[in-house]
């Protein structure tokens, strides 16, 4: 059972971690919390549902795609949709508050998240009902001797690691990635050495949008049932994970996600009657971190800027 529960926790952590990375990435560059990340990820899940229907339609009439190409195409197009949405959201609800109190983008992105959720509910056909997510990743076991490791679970874990690895390469080895780091470390100094801050912000939102897009796909695949309002829960858990890991630290986000996932799973599994309190356990963990170690697990203890 321990083995199965560890696997459950790792998988749950993976579904949280891409959303959490989104939070951390945006926070690093903008110093503000983009609260609608969870809803953006669920938007991506719905895009996948939409695209699969569309591709199914093309397949019937034109026989155009082989399954793997169709899968990749679907996921990439959904991620691009999500990236476009993210940039739009930046323009509409984050940019107007550039130099104002940082609480305003927090409020406006929460509102944008609700608006997004409600728009899916209203405009997606039967949007308020739960819908099944197409089974794009096979649920067959890879090895009969290894229970729990299906192709899908393996792909989710590998994809998460791969995305993080690409992100690592992008942030540390490319010029624009280094500029993102520079801006998140010191905005004024970065501008002074000639970094185009606007460009950096847009690139961050595109990258973040793509990550959330893949995240939405993985979430949808893992649960196989999605609903318009799931984004609120994932947003909250993702943000909590980012805080536990240290806001602004991308790797911390993964650690935070795993911590929260393990807390939830193990309270459910090993405390009698604990299921009802699993979410509370996660939030208590967050409260403890905020109060006693606000810089998170991996964050740097920053000196208050006066």
């Amino acid at each position: 059972m321990l083995y199965a529960q560890i696997l459950n926790a790792v998988m749950l952590g993976c579904t949280y971690s891409l959303v959490a990375i989104g939070f951390s990435l945006f926070f690093g560059v903008l110093d503000t919390v983009v609260f609608c990340a969870g809803d953006v990820a669920i938007f991506s899940s719905f895009s996948v549902v939409f695209l699969v229907q569309l591709i199914g339609f093309y397949n019937i009439f034109f026989g155009l795609f082989n399954p793997v190409a169709a899968l990749l195409l679907t996921v990439i197009v959904a991620a691009i949709f999500t990236a476009i949405l993210m940039v739009l959201l930046y323009q509409l609800v984050i940019k107007p508050f550039e130099n104002k109190s940082s609480l305003m983008p927090l409020l406006s992105t929460i509102a944008a998240g609700i608006a997004l959720r409600e728009l899916i509910g209203i405009f997606f056909p039967e949007g308020r009902n739960p819908r099944s997510f197409p089974e794009l990743l096979s649920n067959e076991r890879i090895l009969q001797e290894l229970p729990g490791i299906s192709w899908r679970n393996a792909i989710i874990i590998v994809a998460t690691i791969l995305i993080v690895a690409i992100l690592y390469w992008f942030i540390n080895k490319t010029k624009i990635g280094l500029s993102i780091q520079a801006v998140s470390q010191n905005r004024e100094a970065a501008t002074m050495v000639g970094i185009n801050r606007n460009l950096v912000i847009y690139v961050t939102f595109i990258v973040g949008g793509l990550i959330l897009g893949f995240g939405g796909f993985l979430i949808g695949s893992y649960y196989a049932v999605i609903r318009f309002d799931l984004g609120a829960g994932f947003g909250l858990k993702g943000f909590s994970a980012a805080v536990v890991g240290g806001l602004g630290n991308v790797y911390g986000a993964i650690v935070g996600s795993m911590l929260i996932a393990f807390a939830e799973v193990f309270v459910t599994a090993y405390i009698p009657g604990g299921t009802a309190y699993a979410s509370i356990a996660a939030f208590v963990l967050v409260l403890a971190f905020i109060l006693f170690k606000p810089e998170g697990v991996l964050g740097n203890k920053s000196v208050e800027k006066v």
Partner: peptide, 21 residues
């Protein structure tokens, strides 16, 4: 066993793994 979950919970695997055997 008795497990109570919030409406909106999506992951039942921890519960199911627990009661499986």
């Amino acid at each position: 066993s008795l497990d109570e979950i919030q409406v909106g919970t999506t992951d039942f695997r921890p519960i199911l793994s627990k009661i499986k055997n």
